[in-house]
Nucleic acid binder design. Structure first.
Length: 185
DNA sequence: ATATCGATGCCCT
DNA sequence: GGGCATCGATATG
């Protein structure tokens, strides 16, 4: 596969990885979708490297290409990939445009509408069958990534749902996508 | 269309 | 005990 992504892709700053992942196809058989929304976290005050340093610090600080899964608000999982092997970094996958395995996604999610299957990090994780046991594994052991066939337009905005470092435009959205979470710009 | 709110677990003081 | 990188249901313009 000419456009397949390897571990080396993640050996750079989280901002570059987050931007580069937008437009890529994410596969976790039998499901697949186009990544339309990501967020970068590094050593900033909103990052788990800072706010959960004792537990998540090692994983986020000195690795790249590993899966990081955490529970939020007691009931939702969020799927991340670590980036930048020489410094803290991770990318949160926030939304997909569903492409394959929609029926499996529907049964996991318990909803029918395509637009509601993977729009938002908790929904995305549920639709793909993400589990906490994946955390710490090589991301590419559980998922496959392919670059987009053509360059994509990406727009940035502040990150969603955080209360610190809200001024940083570290959210990346595929321009014009109806499958991104949050407000339509 | 936006607003509010309850559910829930984990990591931290 | 407090604070979340959230979602879905409900209530109201």
């Amino acid at each position: 596969m000419a456009r397949g992504i390897t571990d080396r892709f993640f050996e750079r700053p989280a901002l570059e990885v987050a931007r580069g992942l937008v437009g890529c196809t994410l596969r976790h058989a039998p499901c697949a979708g186009r990544i339309v929304e990501t967020e970068a976290y590094a050593g900033d005050p909103a990052s788990h490297f800072v706010t959960r340093r004792p537990s998540a610090g090692a994983l986020l600080g000195t690795t790249s290409g590993l899966t990081y899964v955490y529970t939020i608000y007691g009931m939702h999982l969020c799927l991340n990939v670590t980036a930048d092997a020489t410094g803290p970094g991770a990318v949160l996958l926030r939304a997909l445009e569903p492409l394959e395995g929609l029926d499996v996604m529907r049964s996991r999610r318990g909803v029918e509408a395509v637009r509601d299957l993977c729009r938002g990090p908790g929904r995305l994780a549920q639709a793909l069958g993400v589990t906490r046991a994946m955390s710490g594994r090589r991301f590419l052991d559980d998922f496959a990534l392919e670059r987009p066939a053509r360059p994509v337009s990406v727009v940035t905005s502040p990150r969603i749902g955080i209360s610190h470092a809200t001024e940083l435009p570290w959210r990346f959205v595929l321009e014009g996508s109806r499958f991104a979470s949050g407000r339509v710009a």
